[in-house]
């Protein structure tokens, strides 16, 4: 049986207390929300924190508040199930409901939180392995070693950002509030991510993600498509989040963000740019899809061959756009085909 390493567990009741505890314990402590990402990693000895600060008892972090017209606030401890089934989310931010509803399995969505999903560790099939396996292959720089096994000449880690909701939240223009013992700051979620497989979050270790704020939804339409081998369990090996604001049938604003193609969600700006002021014709869609595939640079460290994931980027972007344009292409577009 795979077991957790020993730790001390702290269960603060307020964000302030949590922030204080994290400040006190410094690098020894880690935050745990649903634990669905952290515990498997701990069992494989990717992390052996001395102290866990569990956020489960902090009621202010749980639940969805506000309205689509003024903007929604998602408590980071809201489960993925709750996010995916929330009526307001499903109606006005459908891509988010879709993404949350496509994470892993039903059981896992009952446990995993949206905050944990935003902060989920990057993945690599040289890294998500037991201690013994990693020892056998000689460890890599993300944990216990000093080279990259995917790109041996590289001085950095290319582990893959594998969150389903992160690209969607980015495309929706979400902001996050980070709280620590030193105070709090609110920043666009796009600035949370760094292009580094190891230090993938641009936040301090002791900063708690305390709120996720969605801007008003008016006029925006969104889609999320996910590539993976099975309809359940599997992480995305490509995620495509598209958010468009339409002025009649003309695109007035567009954001396309790709998940699972790099160490952070990647915004496909030129592709989005190309749509602005356009009607969603086949030609416009094809052009945007071609442009979007540009920034996708998958490496061979997840399921599916990387050339295939790259190829699918085009297809998925086109499908997401077609679906938003109401063009029937025979494929069910809210779910991954």
């Amino acid at each position: 049986m795979m077991r957790l390493p020993p730790f001390t567990y702290l269960a603060p009741k307020t964000v302030a207390d949590a922030a204080r505890l994290l400040g006190e314990h410094g690098a020894d402590a880690m935050i745990v929300a649903g634990g669905t990402d952290l515990y498997p990693n701990m069992k494989r000895r990717q992390f052996e924190p001395k102290v866990l600060v569990g956020l489960g008892a902090i009621s202010e972090l749980r639940g969805v508040r506000g309205s689509a017209s003024r903007g929604l606030s998602l408590g980071p401890m809201t489960t993925l199930t709750a996010v995916s089934q929330h009526a307001e989310v499903a109606r006005h931010y459908p891509a988010l409901a879709t993404a949350a509803g496509l994470v892993s399995s039903p059981q896992l969505r009952n446990m995993g939180t949206i905050g944990g999903n935003v902060c989920v560790d990057t993945r690599c099939n040289y890294y998500n392995q037991s201690y013994e396996w990693r020892k056998a292959i000689g460890f890599c720089m993300k944990k216990d070693g000093d080279i990259c096994l995917v790109a041996p000449g590289s001085s950095r880690c290319w582990a893959v950002s594998s969150s389903d909701t992160a690209p969607v939240l980015w495309s929706l223009g979400a902001h996050i509030r980070l709280t620590s013992a030193d105070g709090e700051r609110t920043v666009p979620i796009a600035t949370l991510y760094r292009d580094d497989g190891i230090d993938y979050l641009a936040k301090r270790h002791d900063e708690i993600l305390a709120d996720i704020v969605l801007p008003p939804a008016d006029g925006w339409r969104s889609r999320y498509l996910k590539l993976r081998r099975r309809g359940s369990f599997d992480f995305p090996v490509l995620g495509v989040a598209v958010n468009l604001r339409m002025d009649a049938d003309v695109v007035s604003e567009a954001r396309i963000v790709l998940g699972a193609v790099a160490s952070l969600p990647r915004e496909a700006k030129p592709a989005a740019e190309s749509l602005r002021g356009q009607r969603l014709t086949e030609e416009a869609i094809t052009r945007a899809a071609d442009l979007a595939a540009g920034p996708a640079k998958p490496l061979d460290n997840t399921d599916y061959a990387h050339f295939y994931r790259k190829k699918m980027t085009r297809v998925f972007v086109a499908r997401a756009l077609r679906s938003l344009a109401g063009l029937d292409d025979g494929v069910d577009s809210t779910e991954a085909p």
Partner: peptide, 20 residues
Amino acid sequence: RKGLHKHPSMLEYKSPTTLE
């Protein structure tokens, strides 16, 4: 790969679910 089983896990050894 490199002398090892590439993915000795339930997650990466793909077994069909109800959906497949």
